[in-house]
Design a protein around this nucleic acid. Sequence first.
DNA 1: CCTGGCACTCGACTGTAACGAGTGCCAGTC
DNA 2: GACTGGCACTCGTTACAGTCGAGTGCCAGG
Lengths: 340, 340
Amino acid sequence: MGLDDRKLAVLRAIVEDYVSTQEPVGSKALVERHQLGVSPATVRNDMAVLEEEGYIRQPHTSAGRVPTDRGYRLFVDRLSRVKPLSPAERRAIERFLVGAVDLDDVVHRTVRLLAQLTRQVAVVQYPSLARSSVRHLELVPISTTRLMLVMIADTGRVEQRLVELPGPVHPDDVTDLRRLVNEKLAGARLSDTPPLVQALVEEAPSELRPAMTTLSTVLLETLVERHEERIALAGTANLTRGGLLDFQGSLRPILEALEEEVVLLKLIGETEPSTTRVLIGDENEFDNLRAASVVSTGYGPGATIVGGLGVLGPTRMDYPGTIATVRAVARYVGELLAQN
Amino acid sequence: MGLDDRKLAVLRAIVEDYVSTQEPVGSKALVERHQLGVSPATVRNDMAVLEEEGYIRQPHTSAGRVPTDRGYRLFVDRLSRVKPLSPAERRAIERFLVGAVDLDDVVHRTVRLLAQLTRQVAVVQYPSLARSSVRHLELVPISTTRLMLVMIADTGRVEQRLVELPGPVHPDDVTDLRRLVNEKLAGARLSDTPPLVQALVEEAPSELRPAMTTLSTVLLETLVERHEERIALAGTANLTRGGLLDFQGSLRPILEALEEEVVLLKLIGETEPSTTRVLIGDENEFDNLRAASVVSTGYGPGATIVGGLGVLGPTRMDYPGTIATVRAVARYVGELLAQN
DNA sequence: CCTGGCACTCGACTGTAACGAGTGCCAGTC
DNA sequence: GACTGGCACTCGTTACAGTCGAGTGCCAGG
């Protein structure tokens, strides 16, 4: 089962050729386009071994070879170096991200940039509330029995929620509520808030108790339970590149998956280690995406990670280039966030 | 050029059959499926006239007829009644919209509901700022030289924007700024704010002048110039229904158009009259969408209109049903907004 | 272990023929 | 004058046969 260096070189050549031509690659074409130093017949023998090991396959008997998901995996893990970005790309990134005025703007620009650079579908998760701290909570009276609760997080995220109070509350009481809530919660990590919110209710002066109870419910709901993740998407039109060859002719399952926030979060949100993650074809847990690959990574100011971003494309994708771009964009976004 | 009643009935039958079967309809099939009371030959003569007038056409010589954009137009204008919704649909709408907790929630639920009911791509515009009034402006200090400006509109929209101050500002001054800004702007329609903002700067006490100047710039930028329209989209996977027959085989232009916020706004945002608008095929001003139709209408609490919503699908769509659904959803959303 | 040669496979393409849905036209009928 | 039945015609679709060629597997020889 030993794959010697030449066999690996053959696999690398197959992947590279197939990615660029989109057509099954044969032994003859291979020796012509790469300096392998051996004849087509030898390459054929190597190919036979590679096929036996499951790294490549033949779409049909008299066609060239195509990498399997397993082949791409080997290629990504051992046969490719991350391509350095071209100066043009670096410039594009900088130009694109300069002048962003707020978080929304940053996220939108980022997702468009990613889609444009990789020519694939880009996904950017807003900084996760779970990894944010409360900077300020604002209560704005809408009517005597309604408040607008606005939470501003240190990551720049702003969440609002209407609060329906059990009874009328005087504006002065709103001021008190605001003060109490901020005293207790400002600076706290959102994941640490539940006990604090509980304490808020218990410590509230009796006349504010009912309002505070309602408020606490909404706070917990909004900030913790229904963890309000947000996602931005761009470049779906790129799915139609490469005609109907990629994605075996049907975009349907892909488009369906892209509409599910839960799915997207799973794809790009789970960024435990700060490394780049590559999911190839059926490594993916969603059946709908078995024809696609995902390259994702975490981003955040400095070393901390507050969210994920990545791209989705056909398994036949330029992995080294895509990985490089995704990483670079994540790094730039991180720097941008650090400045705020 | 008179199109007598029977010819119109033939056109109606062609549209209905084609919409449901997705296949060119011939004279024989037509008389079998509809009680026209005449023979196929007669229908053929009528068809010849309809074709001459540009209402239908033949994809190729020995095929049945297909409605043209002009044919659909006539159908929509004169040959169809808006279908009443089924009780099941009514129930679906109510069930879907009950329990929405804030504007974001309402918009998201609405767009999903629309996509599901019509089985097409749904688009919902958030209540336009241009048609909103300021309910409250909040200034939250982020650092000594940075404020987070949060605007809450009467339509429920909340916009935020980071303000980079020219120099450090004391928290007490922030309080003053907040008071001044709210005194002047609260309750004002956003479209009326420019002169008020101008006045704010002029009337500001000198020590607040620089900060107020910066603030006013951001205010104008955020609220008026870069009119922050927001759009929600759902159901793109529905574009793949009907295989590749609709949209002549390429989803690309459609997907591209759907990524352009400007395009979407033009499509569903221009709701001068409160009536439902139907754009069929090339009536559309965007080349990318010449294979699509759009049904849109305005919505808002009570009689006022604050935004638009609609769906986009193939020209071959069930117009009566779609129109009915779009209208019904808009009405329900309006009611929901009126309650808040 | 590599190479050149060779027989083999099988999809892609081409050309032909039969089929049939659908039409346009016309002569005949009410 | 309007409708109808009949008929010839068009043309896309399908089926089938044959050719071509890219690419393979295998083997004998260097």
